[in-house]
């Protein structure tokens, strides 16, 4: 029972991390209709940005964390204005392939700069302490900090998307791009905003994953894969769906690794994907027949 509770909390923190990564992907897909595979490398580079600022320069974790968000947000804008905007008139597969190309380029660049031999830790607040619940449940402080950060990010994201006029312009663009333009919404500004927020969410996910597991040039692959499955599971383009699906997947993953074995853990996301596609292909919050 104690192990179960502990794994539940670890799964929650991992799942919320994935949900942050997936929310960025879902937001960009929902508004801009592109599946941005380069998102995985924004997660990775977010980890390295945090590593450079926090570990190498020697500042507090949150300085690196916000630096990662800002830099990855700007990288998101740069990708939109140089690559995706040009490809918007082309078929979706062209944009998907281009984003895969960006993924490979960024991965190679990171490998060149940092190599993959060294363990590169990022010190997170809370690493020194742990929470003891009852007799033998011990929860790392870093996990609790991760959960707190992701909660704050989700509240912030919810506020921006559902409580501000900027959010209205994003939702309007998602539900009818041309009509939104006729209402005086600037398409390019919304695109820049969405890619900034998406990139920043990716960067923050990388910062937290780096804090929990070290930073590596290949660290973007698994969260990207999980995020893709999460946005299908949650319903393409749905933010709430991404959060709930991320939590479910993270918890299932941790429980499977703990109780069944680490090798089977990697099957969980694909098993979930298979079941979702068979039973509810539109995902948790996708509407049947909704143009996605």
């Amino acid at each position: 029972m104690t192990a179960f509770v502990q794994q539940l909390i670890y799964g929650t923190s991992y799942g919320m991390n994935l949900a942050v990564a997936a929310a960025g992907l879902a937001l960009i897909f929902g508004v801009y209709r592109v599946i941005n595979l380069a998102h995985g490398q924004l997660i990775m580079l977010g980890g390295f940005a945090t590593y450079v600022v926090t570990t190498q320069i020697g500042t507090h974790f949150f300085v690196g964390f916000f630096a990662a968000m800002a830099v990855m947000g700007l990288l998101g804008i740069a990708l939109e204005s140089t690559i995706f905007r040009i490809l918007q008139a082309r078929p979706a597969t062209d944009q998907l392939l281009a984003s895969l190309g960006v993924y490979m380029i960024l991965g190679t660049v990171a490998l060149r700069i940092w190599g993959d031999f060294e363990a590169r830790p990022v010190n997170m607040p809370g690493e020194a302490w742990a929470l003891h619940l009852g007799e033998d449940i011990r929860i790392d402080g870093a996990r609790i900090v991760t959960i707190a950060i992701t909660l704050a990010l989700f509240i912030g994201l919810y506020f921006v998307v559902y409580r501000t006029h900027l959010g209205r312009t994003m939702r309007a663009t998602a539900q009818g791009g041309e009509t939104a333009e006729l209402m005086g919404i600037r398409k390019r500004r919304v695109a820049a905003l969405v890619f900034f927020i998406g990139g920043a969410l990716g960067g923050s996910a990388g910062a937290m994953l780096g804090g929990l597991f070290n930073v590596r040039p290949d660290m973007g692959f698994q969260p990207l894969l999980m995020a893709l499955i999460i946005i299908i599971f949650g319903g393409m383009g749905s933010l709430g769906g991404a959060i709930i699906a991320g939590l479910i997947l993270g918890i299932l993953y941790n429980l499977t690794v703990y109780y069944v074995g680490s090798k089977l853990g990697d099957l969980v996301p694909f098993g979930v994907l298979l079941i979702v596609l068979m039973v509810r292909p539109q995902g948790l919050f996708g509407l049947p027949g909704r143009r996605a």
Partner: peptide, 13 residues
């Protein structure tokens, strides 16, 4: 905008 509230629709204008 089908999934936005009526008042949000109005405000987008």
């Amino acid at each position: 905008f089908p999934e936005m509230s009526v008042s949000d629709n109005l405000m987008v204008g």
